[in-house]
Design a protein around this nucleic acid. Structure first.
Lengths: 239, 239, 239, 239
DNA sequence: TCATAAGCGAGACGGTACGTCACGTCTTGCG
DNA sequence: CGCAAGACGTGACGTACCGTCTCGCTTATGA
């Protein structure tokens, strides 16, 4: 079950070697949003010719340290207690190094979200039936409800309610793409006629999850998810 | 259509037990949460026996100025741009006067929410049929999606994702009560057997609204609400 | 030998009780230059009606702590090593408290200069003869050359070469006044016909002192000063 | 009137011993103070035997660009606004290139001073009479008071009051030597018995100039200089 | 009736974090 | 090896608000 098309930048060499044209990963440039910054476990990707003329490249170690520190501190102190200076200190990095590459703590969290969601919210390579949808929804519920990495999504969703720029980033940078992909897969798996119909099904499943997580603050236990799926998916074919 | 049981605290300092007259007279004590602070149009509540020995009572004008200023500034500058000092300046009030009665800007907004929701989210005095439910849901959608006063709910819901204390205040001080009331009314109007069943119906209607408002960020137009109601309400009796 | 007309604000109640109209001491207002701020040893001077309407007054303790800390740190680390943050830390004061009342470290040093010069560069109350001039010049040389408080003057004179705003402050706020007073006293003591002639004598004495201190960096020992005075003063009457 | 003995280092890397040809060939070594760096109009000094084994030599273009940029920026933004990064940018040079050859902006300015003073403060090749002294003093006054290049001397004199290292550099690297040369020439021109007597005359002339320029901030106009010279020079022979 | 104690405006204060600037060191390719 | 480019750790800058704290003034009791 490999992650497919949600841009998983985990070991994505696209950052420096854009031979993979299929993803959106823009060439990173200092603090112009937050694209293309994600935790990499791979090598520094020195293979390409690089468009940068000369000089020292961005420190991979610093980037990873910042992302991880932000994640840790978010869990530890919450979003409000999350501080650029705190991240810098925890990451052993200079404040200016953070500001060079990210515009705000939201930006840093966003990069973490893209990374973690790429890991946690994958679809099978060739999704083929309702069972794949069920599995994905369970995965989604686990991410949103329990996964510590899901805290980032929760925080960003919350902050998007408070700040239009966060909303814009979150939607056009992540949620829209996620949704488009999910709609397509649902359509395929359920054999639906068009995307609109698939979107209706997807919303019917996801809305209660978001509602329960964000508004009711109750756990998204497997039983709940299963009941939801039984109700929404089984009646679909009947239509 | 007078507001009924959602505690409209316009002139009512007792927040959680409206029927319990014994607690009504208690003058709100400084900054013990956010109880008893709401915009009042009536008199300064002189009816009580007052445990205060002497001196001037709380200034009603100041309280109203603060609440209104907070509302205005929230709309104008957003939650992040909302500051205690800004509210104090806009309200023509000393900072200390705010801190004497509220613990934080969340607290102020919460009072505004209680007040505005009391106005906007009322049920008819004797709700009696599905039509009342439909009307209420439309009202709710309008509040959540368009009403400038609904911005407060949106902001607090967002902030509740970031701060457990806000979540606690919002839920046990407002959402739980709102939900209990709505469940009861839905049960009555639809003639359902028990509260659990009513809660299921309520959630089935509200979840898509919240989802659309908070996650999808699309307008809650009347057509959408009607379609939702048609789907969820009409099929319920059939069960 | 009491200080006369150089505004000695040491224990000058003029800051809050301007019954002494002869001095320039303006009513202090936050960070509008640096007038009227100097170390006071007296009481908080509550006798007057004060133009400030209400609220807490400026903390005398903080003001003194800042001035003294700046003085100490200047001697210890030099002008370049003098830092607002360092002063704040050494004074046990918040940085903002400094910025509230002074615009820059130059401003703080200027206040110290006014204070210290008032102490060190006084004339006798009724200067009457060449001996008073001689005594004053010796005092001046000691101040410029040895007195740790003279370091402030040296630093400000140096910085005035680098920054026009410092130059402006130092001249119109201190040096011009000092010079006018000295010219008048010299004229009186030496029985000169007009101020221009007195200014020539004064310059003839002070120029070598400044030159030696600032340019040659040699000590202004008493022998040098005496020789200078012998040469310049004794021949003057002959003219 | 060719410049004579104030070491005009235009094409002369040996600073302290102009007559000593043995040290001339030494290529300046990186950042060991500020020796040997001055604007050259001639060739890159290829006459020497070059001790460097291989690799590229110091870029003459870069050196000139830095010195000129520093001069321009000093006039434009003042000493405080003068920045290594600003110089580098204005000179089209990498920051490291500056740090390789100079230790600080003071160092760069010092090189400019040595260069400009060499040009502006020359004596005739064989000074012979009081007229030469008068001419030199006029030249000096013009340099100190008007010449944009004199801004450098003013800035360094000012900064020397703030920083002992600058003072040390300025004195032992420039002022002492300048003074020694001037004393010798004055002695010759005025036919004085010894250097001490010449130094007294020199100081008597220069002190008022420095005083007027640095402390009084008044223009050093020709009339003032002439009056000064009349007074100090004409009475000297009488002694 | 009036002292008296609280509410209130004003705003100074010690703090924390912000986002920016420049420092001086370093590393990386190019020539 | 010099150099352009520029990332990096460092530290100070000046600002914005925080929440607490005094001040006098005003005002409505309740002794």
């Amino acid at each position: 079950m490999a992650a497919t098309d949600l841009p998983d930048r985990r070991a994505d060499p696209a950052r420096l070697a854009p031979e993979d044209a299929s993803t959106i990963a823009a060439q990173p440039s200092p603090a112009t949003g937050s694209t293309g910054n994600a935790r990499t476990t791979g090598s520094p990707a020195t293979g390409s010719t690089g468009s940068r003329s000369a000089g020292s490249r961005r420190s991979e170690a610093a980037r990873l340290a910042v992302l991880n520190a932000a994640d840790d501190l978010l869990v530890e102190h919450g979003f409000e207690g999350l501080t650029i200076e705190g991240i810098a200190a925890a990451a052993g990095v200079a404040k200016q190094t953070i500001y060079r590459w990210w515009k705000s703590k939201v930006d840093i969290l966003f990069d973490n979200l893209v990374l973690d969601a790429g890991t946690a919210l994958g679809w099978p390579e060739h999704p083929s039936g309702p069972a794949d949808v069920r599995a994905y929804v369970h995965r989604f519920a686990a991410f949103l409800g329990e996964d510590p990495a899901g805290r980032v999504l929760q925080a960003l969703l919350g902050h998007a309610q408070l700040d239009p720029r966060t909303a814009e980033l979150l939607h056009s940078g992540f949620l829209d793409e996620l949704r488009a992909r999910d709609v397509a897969h649902v359509r395929t798996c359920l054999g639906l006629a068009d995307d609109d119909r698939a979107a209706v099904v997807l919303d019917a499943v996801l809305a209660p999850l978001y509602h329960r997580a964000l508004v009711l603050r109750r756990p998204l236990d497997a039983a709940f998810v299963d009941a939801l799926l039984d109700q929404q998916l089984d009646e679909q074919p009947a239509r």
